[in-house]
Design a protein around this nucleic acid. Structure first.
Length: 414
RNA sequence: GCGAACGUAGCUCAACUGGUUAGAGCACCGGCUUGUGGUGCCGGGGGUUGGGGGUUCGAGUCCCCUCGUUCGCCCCA
């Protein structure tokens, strides 16, 4: 066992994994493009307050999960634990309010100091989108539809469920919070220890408790839905109707609550039961007050983020990439010629492998291992003849092909 | 941060109740084959059994600590 290990919760992404991650990211990027989303890249770290101010003082992310350090200039810096806060900061920094509505896609690493588990890392990758500047439910609908399309293009339509809820506007949420706390206080002694803590910090979360005793109490608790005011009610109905119109299936989950302070109205998660405790694969919601809260302009927003590692655990291998063409020289003269030929073919867009050493047998073996579709053999005979021996690695058929005709002959392997 | 299980070769796993030199398959390298890959046969390199301490005549095996992984809780992508 090697002593030199990566830091806990981080991992090296080898070429095979990267291929799968890229498939997830590229699919998300491509589909987002169909909806008119452009890619934004913000720094991987920000001033700590960008996150601490926006995520909520009581959220777990802020209280125990941030990678925070002081840089040499004495500034407090945090590796971003999520993408939204940085993007809204970018909106403000760049005066982008005049370009609203904005449709932004992002991807990249996020950092949270958590206990690693399957599908949960300390450094992990997300893809996400934010739609800023649209207060109407159509934004929520479009955002969810985009998520749905990405997931189904990844072949996950049957593996995930869309859960949906409304947190209501600030007024509704505050009213509900009061009602809920009043109810729970009556049963405080019977609540689990965790939930008693949550009663102070984030009572809504108690709705989602897995403790059996808690669940019994929650069963009779006032429902969030009943506390929605007229406007919130209508908003949520419009979102649901829109999803119905598009034929996007969902389940309303009245207990779905988001952990971060800035969410309001629509909250949603795509979940799977194939990843153990890490069932959430893509999650998001509306955050109308965030920009203002950060000292920026009024800019309602809705968006989501998805875990690339989690998604790629669900995604199939994907179609095999066509193998390269192997150029196999024998002898010094052939070696030099082969280098030139290889470069020429690469210049024409072929994927070409030129082995580094070994005799014919070795090189053939290596070409086979690489999954080469064809091999071009070059020895003294070929050099004299002015043509290469092209062997089809699947059929084993060989043919003489003049250098001039090589590109055309190889076209079949593209 | 809390609870539990597990850690033997690059990978997947063996090694009876503690007992000689820790094995196998796959993978890797070489040979049969210096102008021909896949199959086959032969051979080879690889391990301070995660690390440290302890018990014992003797520890991969038992005990303690530590690190790591996995599962659950918390929370989340």
């Amino acid at each position: 066992m090697a002593r030199l290990n990566p830091v806990r919760g981080t991992h090296d992404i080898l070429p095979d994994d990267n291929r799968r991650y890229r498939r997830v990211e590229e699919t998300a990027y491509d589909v987002a493009g169909l909806y008119g989303f452009g890619e934004i890249t913000t720094p991987v770290f920000e001033f700590t307050e960008v996150f601490s101010r926006t995520l909520g003082d009581t959220s777990d992310i802020v209280t125990k999960e941030m990678y925070t350090f002081e840089d040499r200039g004495g500034d407090l810096i945090t590796l971003r634990p999520e993408g939204t806060a940085g993007i809204v900061r970018a909106l403000i920094s760049n005066g982008l309010q005049q370009d609203l509505p904005l449709k932004l896609f992002y991807r990249g690493p996020m950092f949270r100091y958590e206990r690693p588990q399957k599908g949960r890392w300390r450094e992990f990758r997300q893809v996400g989108i934010e739609l800023l500047g649209v207060a109407a439910p159509i934004a929520d609908i479009e955002t969810i539809a985009l998520a749905q399309q990405i997931l189904s293009e990844l072949g996950l339509a049957d593996k995930v469920t869309l859960e949906l809820n409304s947190l209501g506007d600030t007024e509704s949420r505050a009213a509900y919070r009061d009602k809920l706390v009043a109810y729970l206080k009556q049963h405080e002694s019977k609540l689990s220890e965790d939930s008693r803590m949550r009663l102070e910090r984030n009572p809504l979360r108690i709705l989602d408790s897995k403790d059996e005793g808690d669940r019994a109490i929650i069963a009779d608790a006032p429902r969030l839905n009943d506390s929605l005011n007229e406007a919130s009610r209508t908003f949520f109905d419009d979102v649901c109707t829109g999803l119905d119109d598009l034929g996007i299936p969902y389940e309303i989950n009245p207990k779905l609550v988001r952990g971060l302070d800035y969410y309001c109205h629509t909250a949603f998660e795509f979940t799977t039961n194939e990843l153990g405790a890490q069932g959430t694969v893509l999650a998001g919601g509306r955050y109308d007050g965030l920009s203002k809260q950060m000292g920026g302009p009024e800019a309602p927003g809705v968006g989501w983020a998805a875990g690339v590692e989690r998604l790629s655990l669900l995604v199939d291998e994907g179609e095999a990439v066509p193998g390269p063409i192997a150029v196999i020289p024998m002898g010094d003269a052939a070696q030099r010629f082969a280098m030139t030929l290889t470069q020429k073919l690469r210049g024409k867009g072929f994927s070409v492998e030129l082995g580094y050493s070994g005799n014919l047998g070795k090189r053939m073996k290596r070409a086979d291992k690489l999954g080469a579709c064809a091999a071009i053999l070059i020895g003294d005979d070929e050099l004299n003849r002015g043509s290469g021996t092209v062997r089809d690695m699947v059929t084993g058929e060989q043919s003489e092909v003049s250098w001039d005709a090589m590109e055309e002959h190889l076209a079949r392997y593209r």
